[in-house]
Amino acid sequence: MKLVESAGLIATSFRSLPPFELHRPAGAEAAARLAASLPRSAYFAGGTDLVAQYNEGWSADHVIDLSRLKFLRRIERQCDALLIGALVTHWNGARSRKVRGALPGFAAAWARIANVRVRMAATLGGNLMARRTRYESPVLLSAAGATLEFVTAAGPLSMPVSAFLASGAPASALLESVRIPLLPGMRFDYERSPRPIATQALALWAGDEGRPAGRVALATEHVFPRVLDLDLSGYASLAEVRGDAHTIAARSFEALPADFADPVTGNAWLRRAGAVLLSRQLKRTAW
């Protein structure tokens, strides 16, 4: 539904799509330049969300199809990070050897989001760029501490995923890849059982001097992920973390802001159940 302030609500649909010009640039810089030079333009990846945006009343005069940019489908393992191209579909990404090898827990979580049909068509980049609270990859990437790597007409731009979710990317910035840091001993867990109310992702790794470190990202159907850093300073090993999971989880959720809630679920439950679930996540992940 589209809201036209001066008129009212109008139910647009794919049958009322306004015409657009289709562009198919061959390089990322060319794509970013094109987007910067064209008013009302949009990048097109898997397409699954763009049509939904049309249905919400958004429209573009120019659609820039990225399918020729093969390098956006690359997955690259660097020494300290995993780079996942924006056009990698959920299906291919979660099944890729590189992702499973580097971040098995993350790959397992990624393989469970949305549904098979959407996983096959939708891309990681499209999923992120849609900036929808109900999509799941932002939860996973928030916990993983990922950074989004953009190409802009003015050059490359890096943005932490949380900053991107809060404010969006600059106009015409092209998401090239998602950088997930490969921290020593990194492991990952995704708690999806409270769907459709909320989900929460946990990342644990060996921090300074090999001491455990971690963060949890909690999101609801209506609210973007909130990242809570776990205070693990007093723990020398994962075994200790596991042993004290309950206390750690309870303490971590004390940092959840009192206004973190949505129209369906109150802060009290999100805080209390979130802590319980985190404690269980810690118990099964910290080994």
Binding site: T48, L50, V51, A52, D65, S67, R117, A121
Partner: peptide, 13 residues
């Protein structure tokens, strides 16, 4: 061979 939602797939794809 891949299932797609025809309502959310452009013909050019």
């Amino acid at each position: 061979g891949q299932p797609v939602a025809g309502c959310s797939t452009f013909a050019f794809q």
